[in-house]
Design a protein around this nucleic acid. Structure first.
Lengths: 336, 336
DNA sequence: CGATGCTGTTAGAGCGCTCTAACGTTAGTG
DNA sequence: CACTAACGTTAGAGCGCTCTAACAGCATCG
């Protein structure tokens, strides 16, 4: 019954077939739950397989069948819990579809990211879901080599790549409108590196500021908590006049900003009001009370999974873009 | 130059070989950067490959070479950022080793988890790193089928499975000692479901309480923020006398507890002092100021990667266990 | 000048599986 | 009772790659 581990690694269908006194093809059918196998042979095969400690080699079966029933999912950053929410949505949307998920992490580095996508493609996954990506359209398209893909939180102008995102421009507008309504006029925006393809929130901010005839104030950060804190520390050290309100590119940045303010004895929202974006779990915590803009991460994941399943099932046609309306979640950091 | 996507998917080494006027074996050598290829042929092959849009089929190469240079990494829960820290440690420890990482998420469900491990094994990864797992030793051993493995944050009594963890018993003791020293005598512990294999923190708590001659007070939760909040809400609703201090199984739970207390106008640490465990990023935030016990997640990941590399390189020998000393991080939630 | 070694290349036999087409049985039909 | 139909089973040809062993070509050497 119990075999040595090493021996197990090389038990093949052939061995099981011999042990059970049937052909290799029959074993294959049993392993794939084919209905056209007599129950007698089926149990015989299963018993032999168990006795030998057989574990099917998925590399071989995938190679032979030219199907993998596997989707690759790439995450931008594991430290941002918005990706955990997206992950939940994806698994929910994929439930019962018989598809497996392979995860990779891009770490906000186009190199790592492209490497991961290439790896997915080389392993012949049926499709790729990019939950946040920083590479250029051209590079990503080249790496995908025609593999169906869905991008979350970004719009990629590539053939056969669907996009599922929240209207980030609108989020920027919502943030400014909210702060303007509260009476703020000096509203700053802490966004992200220039080269990153996520510019819509900033553009929304700029457009709304212009609409209200206000002077924009932009500072770059790196979408991390640490980055947000550093930016605010620098700003405070510079002695420049503080804005009365700050809209941050995402919640992590916003929290970092709040930390720096707290460290200097400044009160939120009394001295500076803060609005974040993403509405991650911790932002909603009463301990933080960060006003944020919900981009419906779970729903984005679910929709991406749905589109992916359609593509995998063979639905062709031009690339689709699904855009959700953001929702402002008012909390302590901007009033009340 | 540009081929249709579908065509790309079926370009094989044979095609490249024909196009370049060489043998398939030579193409294979070029693709694997063999030094024994003349530079003339090398460039010819690379040009043909690019022209045809060739992408090597990694399934086939892995099958043929019986090596994958890939490690499977399983995470318990993407919502807990301690796993992001562990991930960083792992990638750091693996850097430059030429190994790829495949990630899967167990979602604190033994079924999903075992399925993921089986999937890794069936894909013939060289090794598996389990960053948190809830299955039984026997089930995991069966699923691994002899594949080298390293478990993080848990000790698995399985042949060939190394363990890397923090001394959780000691963490429980540290928490109680700290609170006792602050003068607390009614110290509760919010831990996790009975069936989960993570009992050391509770045992440390119980041992330390006994040492001080104090009456233990245990409540079960589910290691999530929501769970912690629910438990505390229930407790408050029950009208039972509050403990003066609570040690929570992890930081998420602790934060949930703090939220419930805040919602009822209770002050931390004045009414109830809180100590968490894991020292996740957000616990360290001045906005939360949660006293926590650092289990050195990054270091755990790095060590696990190191052990894994040794195993993959062929080091045999009995299973190793590496245990780190936890570090108490005192913050606002327990005083000062 | 034939033996020796070296470099670059290739034929061909797998890796462990799937899938098509064909097979032997048995049951159903006129 | 031959004749088809359906069922369960199998042989054998791949899937796209790697790897061993052998090979041609050429310089080196006693």
């Amino acid at each position: 019954m119990k075999q040595s581990p090493v021996a197990n690694r090389s038990v093949t269908m052939e061995d099981v077939a011999r042990e059970a006194g049937v052909s290799r093809a029959l074993v294959s059918l049993v392993m794939r739950d084919s209905p056209k196998v007599s129950s007698a042979k089926r149990t015989a095969v299963l018993e032999s397989a168990a006795a030998l400690g057989y574990s099917p080699n998925r590399l071989a079966s995938r190679l032979a069948s030219r199907r993998t029933n596997t989707l690759g999912v790439l995450f931008l950053d594991l430290h941002n819990s918005v990706f955990a929410d997206i992950y939940d949505g994806i698994t929910e949307g994929l439930a019962g579809s018989g598809n497996q998920v392979m995860v990779a992490v891009g770490s906000a580095d186009p190199g790592t990211e492209l490497e991961a996508v290439r790896s997915f493609v080389d392993l012949r996954v049926d499709g790729v879901i990019l939950a946040g990506c920083t590479g250029s359209s051209a590079e990503l398209a080249a790496a995908l080599r025609g593999t169906p893909a869905v991008v979350i939180t970004r719009e990629l102008e590539v053939d056969g790549v669907d996009s599922v995102l929240c209207d980030d421009f609108r989020s920027g507008v919502l943030a400014v409108e909210h702060l303007h309504e509260l009476g703020h006029r000096r509203i700053a925006h802490v966004d992200i590196s220039d080269w990153l393809p996520y510019t819509a929130r900033r553009e929304g901010y700029l457009a709304a500021m212009k609409k209200f005839g206000l002077e924009p104030l932009l500072v770059h950060s790196d979408m991390t908590e640490r980055g947000g804190r550093a930016v605010m520390e620098n700003f405070l050290a510079s002695g420049a006049t503080l804005p009365t309100a700050i809209f941050a590119h995402n919640d992590l940045t916003a929290i970092g900003i709040m930390e720096a303010l707290a460290a200097h004895g400044l009160l939120v929202p009394d001295d500076v009001a803060i609005v974040g974006c993403d509405n991650i779990e911790v932002a909603a915590s009463p301990l933080i009370g960060l006003t944020s803009i919900d981009q419906h991460a779970g729903e984005l994941g679910r929709m991406a999974a749905g589109l992916m399943l359609e593509r995998v099932a063979g639905t062709s046609g031009p690339a689709v873009t699904r855009k959700l309306e953001p929702t402002l979640m008012v909390r302590r950091s901007s009033g009340a």
